[in-house]
Design a protein around this nucleic acid. Sequence first.
DNA 1: CGTCCTGTAACTACAATGAATACAGGTAAT
DNA 2: ATTACCTGTATTCATTGTAGTTACAGGACG
Lengths: 148, 148
Amino acid sequence: MSISSRFSVGIHILTLIEINKDGVSSSEYLAASVNTNPAVIRKIMGMLKKAGLLKVQPGIAGAELAKDLSDITLLDVYKAVNVVKDNELFSIHENPNPDCTVGRNIQNTIEPLFFTAQNTLENVFKNVTIEDVVKDIFEKEKVNAKSK
Amino acid sequence: MSISSRFSVGIHILTLIEINKDGVSSSEYLAASVNTNPAVIRKIMGMLKKAGLLKVQPGIAGAELAKDLSDITLLDVYKAVNVVKDNELFSIHENPNPDCTVGRNIQNTIEPLFFTAQNTLENVFKNVTIEDVVKDIFEKEKVNAKSK
DNA sequence: CGTCCTGTAACTACAATGAATACAGGTAAT
DNA sequence: ATTACCTGTATTCATTGTAGTTACAGGACG
């Protein structure tokens, strides 16, 4: 099992729109950078738009960020692209046997653990913004240029 | 997307084997508590055995823990049942365009973030043992008895 | 030898992913 | 208004993972 690449693609899209803010970020342009089909990009853009992260209009080429760079966290993206339903990162087997000590208590014991783990994970993403990603990409670009 | 219930079933199995240590924990017995098919249980038991958490022998009914209760962490179980391949909790889109500033750097920017998130998640499970789970189940059982 | 067990393989149904194609409908320039 | 290009969306497809089921080979043991 792996969490869908919609998450990383979503980050890619938002980052590129920012870096290309003087140009036109059409789904085709973005698809060329991500290296996938424009329809896939449009679908993800639709999710980002629905979450209020992106401004796009039918018929008009290009998209722009709907919020300030530093106001978009990776958690926003994570939630937007719907890679994991709320509190369902881990699935718990259904209907354990209520006639067994373990069966009738295991769910209540495990659930809080799973929720904690999930929250911990999400907190990591809550503390990183698209601005951080943009800065890091410029950083990496600089290092590459020097090493040539 | 959800992480396979093999994880919660694995915890259930180990916990029940402990609590039923004076009895015989056959795959059929465990399956009745988990409420699934014995073959499913045997498959997961095979994984737990392979990871050195469980002692089982062909032909002999029952299984027992291969380690001390307090030496089996949930992370051991998590790794054992192979619900997430190493460092692949998040999938990153392949082959982004190297001719684009974002395309050629995004993977190196995102990967460390994903690894951090994954490690944070796993650390939660590293700090909980089967012993903790067993204790919590007895705790919950006590509370239930009182509320009757 | 018969019985019960574990270990596996094979098959099923089902859901999610990611890519691809197609097209309806919006926008705008000519 | 016609044309060209865009977004939004439905549909289809191949692939993969999950979870359950059945079946059976082979071990253990009375």
